[in-house]
Design a binder for these strands. Structure first.
Length: 283
DNA sequence: CACTTGACCTGTCCGC
DNA sequence: TGCGGACAGGTCAAGT
C-alpha cells in the first residue's frame, strides 16, 4: 500500500501526537506481524518519529526503536486520549478500532492507543536497538532517498546503470536503486518524463534521465503535498484518506483519456505489476 | 551474474 | 446468487 509519500504523511501526523507518550503495554493479535520481544519497550517514552524509504520508525528512550513496514495493506492509526476531541479516527471506511485486520495494538499510559492494521499480513512491526537500525537487514540494502539533497542527477544516473537491461519502470521500483518508490509513483514518474515504461535503461537518452530524475521528485513531492494516495487501503494516522490520486495522470486510469493528449491509456504487465501509460505521450 | 517469476495472505471485483 | 480467476500500492526466495 503505502509508498514514500504515504509513510511520510503518517510520520508527519504521528510525530505531532505521540512524542512524550509512555508505552504501557503491547497486544500482539497476530504473531507473524511482530518481530522481537515486546516486553522490552514497556515503560519507555517516545522520543522521535522518522521515515526511511517505506519504513516508519519510532525511537524510544534507552536506545530502543520500533519499526513498521506496511507492505501492501498496512495502516497505522492513532486514537487519542480523548477519542471524541481531535484524536478519534474520523475515517469513513473502517469503523472503530480495533477491527478484523488489527494485528498489533500499542497502549500508552495516558490511555491513547496506536493500532497496526494489516489485512494481508505482509507487513511487520519490529523492535531493535536504535543504534542497530542502520544495520537492519532491510534498511541497510536501501538506495538513496529521492527527496533528499543526496539524490542528485549524477547519483541517479549511476544508480540506474546498475540495471541497464531492465525496463525503466521496473528499475525505479527496485529499493536498492532508489528507495521509497512504489507502483503508483513509478507509473506517474515515467509519465511525467514522457518515457515508455518498457524502455530499457541502456536505451535512455541523457534527456530521458534528466526528465525521469525530475519526474520522480515531482510525483513523490506531489504525493506528500496531497497527503498520499486515496486508493483502497491507505489512510493516515487519523484514519483519513489522501487526495493524490485525484491528481494522478495514469495510475488507476486504465481506459480513460490521457489528461495531456486525450488518447486512451493502455494497461500492460511489467515485472508482474500492472502498469498504465499513454502510448502517445510516452516513447 | 542479471533478470524474471512465484510465494506470502486476505479481500474484492468481474465474467460466466 | 454462486463460483472461479484475476488482481491489489511490497519484498524475498527460487528459478532461468
Amino acid at each position: 500500500m503505502p509508498e514514500l509519500p504515504e509513510v511520510e504523511t503518517i510520520k508527519l501526523g504521528l510525530e505531532k501526537k505521540i512524542i512524550g507518550l509512555n508505552i504501557q503495554s503491547i497486544d500482539i493479535l497476530n504473531r507473524t506481524s511482530f518481530i522481537g520481544e515486546s516486553k522490552l519497550v514497556i515503560g519507555k517514552v517516545v522520543i522521535s518519529v522518522w521515515r526511511r524509504a517505506k519504513v516508519l520508525g519510532i525511537d524510544l528512550e534507552d536506545n530502543l526503536s520500533l519499526m513498521f513496514h506496511l507492505k501492501m495493506s498496512g495502516q497505522i492509526i492513532f486514537e487519542g486520549r480523548d477519542k471524541f476531541i481531535g484524536g478519534h479516527p474520523t475515517n469513513d471506511m473502517f469503523g472503530s478500532m480495533p477491527n478484523s485486520s488489527t494485528r498489533v495494538i500499542v497502549y500508552f499510559t495516558d490511555s491513547s492507543k496506536l493500532f497496526f492494521n494489516d489485512q494481508r499480513k505482509f507487513g511487520w512491526v519490529k523492535i531493535c536497538n536504535t543504534k542497530d537500525v542502520i544495520n537492519d537487514k532491510f534498511l541497510s540494502k536501501l538506495g538513496p532517498e529521492p527527496l533528499e539533497k543526496e539524490f542528485t542527477l549524477e547519483v541517479f544516473k549511476s544508480q540506474l546503470m546498475k540495471r541497464k537491461n531492465s525496463p525503466v519502470k521496473v528499475v525505479i521500483l527496485d529499493q536498492a536503486i532508489i528507495s521509497g518508490i512504489g507502483n503508483i509513483y513509478a507509473a506517474e514518474a515515467v509519465f511525467l518524463a514522457k518515457i515508455d515504461p518498457r524502455k530499457k535503461v541502456k536505451d535512455l537518452s541523457e534527456t530521458d534521465m534528466k526528465n525521469l530524475h525530475h519526474g520522480i521528485i515531482k510525483s513523490l513531492s506531489d504525493g506528500v503535498k496531497y497527503k498520499g494516495s486515496s486508493s483502497v487501503h491507505f489512510v493516515n494516522e487519523a484514519g483519513q484518506r489522501g487526495s493524490f490520486l485525484d491528481h494522478a495522470f495514469v495510475y488507476g486510469r486504465e481506459g480513460k483519456n490521457c489528461k495531456i493528449c486525450n488518447q486512451i491509456l493502455n494497461k500492460i504487465n511489467l515485472g508482474g505489476r500492472g502498469t498504465i501509460f499513454c502510448p502517445n505521450c510516452q516513447k
